[in-house]
């Protein structure tokens, strides 16, 4: 069981390393969305500090969505997904490895880049630790939800907009809790409730997510 997860994780990481440009695109997009928000708004420090956490979360959300679109496509087209589904080991295990790898190569770099975006937006120092903590708890949920949408739409020819329509409403709680936590911290308050909720959502996504994605993959293989 562990070897299936490990093999899937290793495979995905290897694939990611072989296509570094694919990895970089969502990250650049993440920074770009932040930049566009600043340009669209007034670049005054008060406004930016106030909307900053929300902008970072929306950018993270859109970048995750962009990164997820191709998550299953090449595996479906090459037939590798079919072989995983026809293995005697549960498909969920391969999916766990895949999601873990996907979070490591897209979610984690987003978290590491977010201080840069926070700097650009002039976020107060005090808001940074809670923002990072919230991103660590929230991005796995985004990974699972985006993967679910990607698995459901992978067999369709033009899946991009449909993926967004299907996934974005489901991500509302993560967006709300995540940005509120950082915003409250920036204003000197503490929003422990939001952090606890993010933790609960993370646990929920980690436990129910992989089997749900596996079901979605089986449906797309039909």
């Amino acid at each position: 069981m562990r070897s299936v997860i490990a093999a899937s994780l290793a495979r995905e990481c290897l694939l990611a390393v072989r296509q570094l440009s694919d990895l970089a695109t969502p990250l650049l997009f993440f920074i770009l969305v932040g930049l566009l928000f600043v340009l669209g708004l007034e670049p005054s420090p008060e406004i930016l500090a106030e909307v900053g956490p929300g902008v970072i979360w929306v950018a993270a959300l859109l970048a995750s969505l962009l990164g997820a679109e191709r998550l299953f496509r090449a595996d479906l087209e090459s037939g590798a997904l079919e072989l995983q589904a026809l293995g005697s080991e549960p498909l969920t295990l391969s999916i766990i490895g895949k999601l873990l790898a996907h979070w490591l190569v897209t979610g984690l770099p987003l978290i590491l880049l977010s201080p840069l975006l926070a700097l650009m937006l002039g976020l107060p120092q005090a808001a940074l630790p809670p923002l990072l903590a919230a991103l660590i708890l929230g991005t796995p949920v985004l990974t699972v939800l985006c993967a679910l949408g990607a698995a459901l739409t992978v067999s369709l020819r033009s899946s991009g907009t449909l993926l967004a329509l299907v996934v974005l409403p489901l991500t509302v709680p993560v967006l709300i809790f995540g940005s509120r936590v950082a915003m409250e911290a920036g204003q000197g308050g503490a929003a422990e409730g939001g952090m606890l909720w993010l933790g609960a959502l993370c646990a929920l996504a980690a436990s129910l997510g992989p089997p749900a994605v596996a079901v979605a993959v089986r449906i797309s293989l039909e």
């Binding site: 679910l148 459901l152 739409t153 067999s155 299907v166 409403p169 489901l170 509302v172 709680p173 709300i176 809790f177 509120r180 409730g193 939001g194 909720w197 959502l201 129910l208 749900a212 079901v215 979605a216 449906i219 797309s220 039909e222």
Partner: peptide, 29 residues
């Protein structure tokens, strides 16, 4: 049709788990 039914059904089930969370988070927000 069958694939669409099953795909959207899974989305519906995931959605119904999410609806109370969405309601709560929006209230909290």
């Amino acid at each position: 049709q069958q694939t669409g039914d099953r795909a959207s059904a899974l989305l519906g089930v995931v959605g119904v788990v999410n609806v109370p969370i969405i309601h709560f988070s929006v209230d909290w927000w």
